[in-house]
């Protein structure tokens, strides 16, 4: 299977990446170069394998259904850009619907 420019643009949107148009041809070529090596998997017989049990580790240990203390070793004030009444103050993000309408501090 080969990817096209449209595929790469679509995937970039899903991944929240803004790709410059001049990079697209190169990326399409690189991704197809990589994906060509994956074709060997298609021909591999995996009928005897359950794809959901391939991570061969101990089962996750059970633990009590309770929250412990936050493992932070420094105060929030020491690393947050700004904090007020126990809340982080972050730059206002305009929404894409009404970017101009809601700019109150």
């Amino acid at each position: 299977m080969a990817v096209t420019q449209a595929d790469v643009i679509h995937v970039a949107e899903l991944a929240r990446l803004a790709l410059p148009a001049e990079r697209l041809d190169h990326l399409v070529s690189e991704l197809n170069g990589i994906l060509a090596h994956m074709d060997v998997l298609e021909k591999t017989d995996t009928s005897a394998i359950d794809s959901n049990v391939s991570v061969p580790v101990d089962s996750t240990p059970l633990r009590s259904d309770s929250s412990g203390p936050l493992p932070m070793l420094t105060s929030r004030e020491s690393f947050a850009p700004s904090i007020r009444d126990g809340f982080f103050i972050v730059p206002r993000l305009a929404t894409h619907e009404d970017a101009a309408a809601d700019t109150a501090p």
Binding site: V11, A15, L17, L35, D50, S51
Partner: peptide, 30 residues
């Protein structure tokens, strides 16, 4: 990093998940 995010998003996307990701997990089992 950009290349791998694109590749990873592609192999998880609708229409390609079974052909790439699920198949790779099965071969990982082998």
């Amino acid at each position: 990093v950009t290349r791998r995010i694109l590749l990873g998003t592609y192999v998880l996307s609708a229409g390609y998940y079974d052909a790439y990701y699920r198949k790779a997990q099965s071969v990982r089992g082998l």
